[in-house]
Write a protein that binds this DNA or RNA. Sequence first.
DNA 1: TTGATTTATTACCATTTGGTAACAACTTTG
DNA 2: CAAAGTTGTTACCAAATGGTAATAAATCAA
Lengths: 189, 189
Amino acid sequence: MLAETLKKSFDKYFNAPIEAWIEFAAFCEPITFEKDQIIKPQGSTEKYFYFIIKGSAGLFLWKETNFVCLDFAFENNACCDYMSLLTRQPTELEVVALEKSEMIRISSANFHILSRKSVGQVIMQMTAEASFIEKQQQQIELLTKTAEERYKILQTKFPDIHQRIAQKHIASYLGITPQSLSRIRSGSY
Amino acid sequence: MLAETLKKSFDKYFNAPIEAWIEFAAFCEPITFEKDQIIKPQGSTEKYFYFIIKGSAGLFLWKETNFVCLDFAFENNACCDYMSLLTRQPTELEVVALEKSEMIRISSANFHILSRKSVGQVIMQMTAEASFIEKQQQQIELLTKTAEERYKILQTKFPDIHQRIAQKHIASYLGITPQSLSRIRSGSY
DNA sequence: TTGATTTATTACCATTTGGTAACAACTTTG
DNA sequence: CAAAGTTGTTACCAAATGGTAATAAATCAA
């Protein structure tokens, strides 16, 4: 049941009674995506906040002739073009399902309504803060670690990422070409 | 007067009556820093949230033998080790005044109290969201732009940065060495 | 002001990463 | 299953960036 899933996912961060989650769950609707399905196309404004029950997704940005991945999201994590959702403005970011996925989503309107409710407010504040911290960690890695170190950190964070996500996406997330990642993995240097 | 300065700085984002700002200002205290003064040393937990009235500051991280700059902050902007403030945990990040500066600060305890008050809550949520967006923009630049392009973007954002901030700090922010920035500026390539 | 220290510039070469291309491995689809 | 398309690997060379060092310029401090 959805309220229980939510409670279980968020209990490690803060406690809220199951009743609050039942109220919260009323704002959610389930949705499924096929592999490679575009959840939010570039140039559009984000209309939903997604929470992944099963599967994975990526946040992409076009760069010359290929896509760069800004973020991966897996089970029990949020996934959306958060920048667009917050600003209510269109962006060039694209959200894509990287596996067959089951998610729940909250419409943009409900997301902003929930921001003013007790449980919702805590979640929204927490989401904004956690997203910032996550982004700053990524910036720190890009500025202070080599591509090889960044790859190892990613592997530690998501041990099965290589079984689930195409190497070209991992490479773009690391800020290198697929060839370079191939060389790193083979231990050429 | 402080409440008026705050109101003026934040009015572009949302409206709040001057009374709310007077209440808010009661939580603030003024403080000054000399150039190169360490505001928050590495390994410590952030005890304050700062707002710059005059001057500038940088957020730094040690990398092998030099510092890398994660962020610059100037007049009318916040400045602190926000990650440490949010998590209440120590970090390796260091906050340094880059010019003689006048700031106001809010203690960590008051910062978290304010998060539950009406005006404070809006500011805190806004701060978290704006910080995330800013960080994601930086990540996008690091992943999709060349060092030269990133330098031009920075110049557009802070036209007088080169008059105010040491080039080595700008270089570290861009993710390159001071020598590389020197070459970019001279138009060697 | 002068000498000492720090910062910026330039040149040189080393290292890392990028891009093209050919091929191999894998995946998808009919 | 077989053909077509996509993805991953490797080799090669090109381009970008790093690191050392010598010098010049700027800043700081006595």
